[in-house]
């Protein structure tokens, strides 16, 4: 389901999945899909995320799955409510729209860091052990673009054997993340620091991004 040129990152992600025969699910949009400007859980939904949901439901691209924008079990709303139940800032400040099935790795937009045109940055939330969130893209479509490159790098890496890969997301994508100027600008302005919980891994990532050449 190509989106024309509106979401080039999402189009690229679909192309990569097709080219490498990675599993992909493209269910039709749900009637409950939010429109641009809609309020979800008290905050405006990101305009690009709203555009994605106008095209697709609970889609999947290789190892990435989106929560369908519904109030049904496992849908976007109940999942975010469940994640927010303990009041942790990483969930309460974000709208988690994606995850990696089988892991406690989530992807969320950050409404309070929306820039002009309302575009919200995307953070990676790690909850496999210590909980922290770090910035990875200046917009939802930029995130899809980044993820498409990650999937390509994984496919190209057969150095471990047994179907395992060295390439990690987002850590091995730093070369592309640092090219995302609007994101790096916000990182330098310490806008994401409140999500790190002073976790060593998160702080190191922010340092790595800040150290990049502008």
């Amino acid at each position: 389901m190509p989106t024309g040129s509106m979401l080039p990152g999402l189009d690229r992600l679909m192309t990569v999945c097709r080219r490498h025969s990675l599993s992909m699910k493209l269910p039709p949009p749900l009637a409950s899909a939010p429109t641009e400007g809609a309020i979800l859980l008290g905050e405006p939904v990101d305009p690009q995320l709203a555009a994605v949901y106008q095209h697709l439901g609970a889609a999947e691209f290789g190892t990435l799955a989106l929560y369908g924008p519904s109030t049904e079990e496992g849908g976007l709303i109940p999942k975010n409510q469940w994640l927010r139940k303990r009041g942790q800032v990483q969930y309460c400040s974000t709208l988690v729209f994606g995850w990696e099935p089988g892991f406690a790795f989530y992807y969320g937009t950050v409404p309070k860091l929306a820039r002009s045109q309302g575009l919200q940055p995307v953070v990676f939330i790690s909850a496999m052990e210590a909980l922290f969130a770090v910035p990875i893209a200046s917009s939802v479509d930029r995130f899809f673009h980044l993820y498409s490159h990650y999937l390509e790098r994984r496919v190209a890496d057969d150095s471990v054997g047994g179907g395992l890969s060295y390439v990690t997301f987002p850590w091995d994508m730093v070369d592309l993340v640092v090219q995302d100027e609007p994101l790096i600008e916000q990182v330098r302005a310490t806008r994401f620091d409140f999500l790190t919980d002073n976790d060593k891994d998160a702080l190191e990532w922010l340092e790595e991004l800040r150290a990049s050449q502008s």
């Binding site: 892991f103 496999m128 052990e129 047994g162 395992l164 890969s165 060593k200 891994d201 990532w205």
Partner: peptide, 18 residues
């Protein structure tokens, strides 16, 4: 030495597969 973030991420993924 404490595990770095790349190693943890790899080992999480591998542990699930294995």
């Amino acid at each position: 030495t404490p595990l770095d973030r790349r190693t943890k991420q790899r080992l999480w993924e591998w542990s699930r597969t294995e």
